[in-house]
């Protein structure tokens, strides 16, 4: 194997690589060394795929969250007492905003990578990527980063919609950014596994509806962990969503029910582990090659 360096145009392929391409290969700039052309192309392709279809990618979470904020925040939320977080009183509609951002962001990050890979397998056009000289790491990172970007954009959209209904501070912006990045990357990475594992479109539905959403809903999006007692509280601590929602909530309010640094560290390690798993699955051709 040739490491993860991309193969230059003029090295093997191409009978007569053009001057421009040859020059680019002969003296690659910093951008080409950090983000080689092949990786950038696949990343760009993946981003274009969801950017050009906003009615399929951005409009549904926007509408869904307008409904969430209207029903749970305004109509029901008005009847629910404010939450007290680290001594600070937070109205219910503001309390649920971080969780809704997490819900939208991870759902879209997961859906993007899982759908893109599975659809490519289903119609076999992923072969265009697999038969190219892209290193497996570049393939995986392009899928993950583009999907995480979609998750972040959806998270921002939900945040902006939330601002139409309530106002929230951003007490710890670096934590907010760090948690959002890590959870989007983590679920984009999980999406790669899902896209490789799925044998039918039903598999993706099962993953999203029967695993992802229950974990999120029981991850403290709509309630405080303080509301749980005994075994319910203990079980909740095994739900990774709890730490994600808690971390993003910490980014907004500067207060959290669980220690944010430990949460961030565990989620970061988990993300790296899943990314490594993705690369290994691609290298082995799991779900991709005979």
């Amino acid at each position: 194997m040739n490491g993860d360096d991309e193969v230059g145009v003029a090295s093997d392929g191409g009978n007569a690589a053009t001057e421009g391409a040859t020059t680019a290969t002969a003296s690659p700039g910093l951008l080409d060394r950090l983000l080689p052309t092949g990786f950038r192309t696949l990343f760009h392709r993946e981003v274009l795929r969801f950017v050009r279809r906003p009615r399929n990618t951005f409009l549904p979470p926007a509408i869904t969250n307008v409904l969430y904020f209207s029903v749970f925040g305004v109509i029901l939320g008005g009847r629910i007492d404010s939450f007290v977080l680290d001594g600070r009183e937070i109205e219910y509609i503001a309390f649920i905003l971080p969780g809704l951002i997490v819900l939208g962001a991870i759902s879209n990050a997961f859906e993007n990578s899982s759908f893109s890979i599975f659809h490519g397998r289903w119609n076999e056009y992923i072969h265009e990527v697999l038969t190219s000289p892209l290193p497996y790491t570049s393939m995986v990172l392009a899928y993950i980063l583009s999907s995480a970007l979609r998750g972040l954009v959806v998270g921002i959209i939900i945040g902006l919609i939330g601002l139409l209904f309530t106002s929230v501070p951003v007490a710890r912006p670096l934590y907010l950014v760090a948690f959002m990045l890590v959870i989007c990357l983590l679920f984009a990475s999980f999406g790669v596994v899902g896209g490789l594992w799925a044998r039918d479109f039903d598999y993706l539905t099962v993953l999203n509806q029967f695993i992802l959403r229950p974990l999120v809903f029981f991850g403290g999006v709509f309630y405080s962990l303080d509301a749980l007692e005994g075994i319910a509280y203990t079980v909740s601590l095994f739900n990774p969503m709890v730490y994600m929602v808690n971390g993003v909530r910490y980014g907004f309010f500067g207060a959290a029910e669980l220690p944010p640094n430990e949460s961030l560290a565990v989620l970061s390690v988990l993300t790296l582990a899943v990314v490594a798993l993705d690369v290994e699955l691609f290298r082995r051709g799991y779900g991709l090659v005979d």
Partner: peptide, 19 residues
């Protein structure tokens, strides 16, 4: 689609369009 395929082979954007 062709530009993407060329890009995967490391061919820069402008050259990929020409090809």
């Amino acid at each position: 689609v062709l530009e993407h395929k060329a890009g995967y082979h490391g061919i820069p954007s402008g050259e990929a369009t020409r090809r």
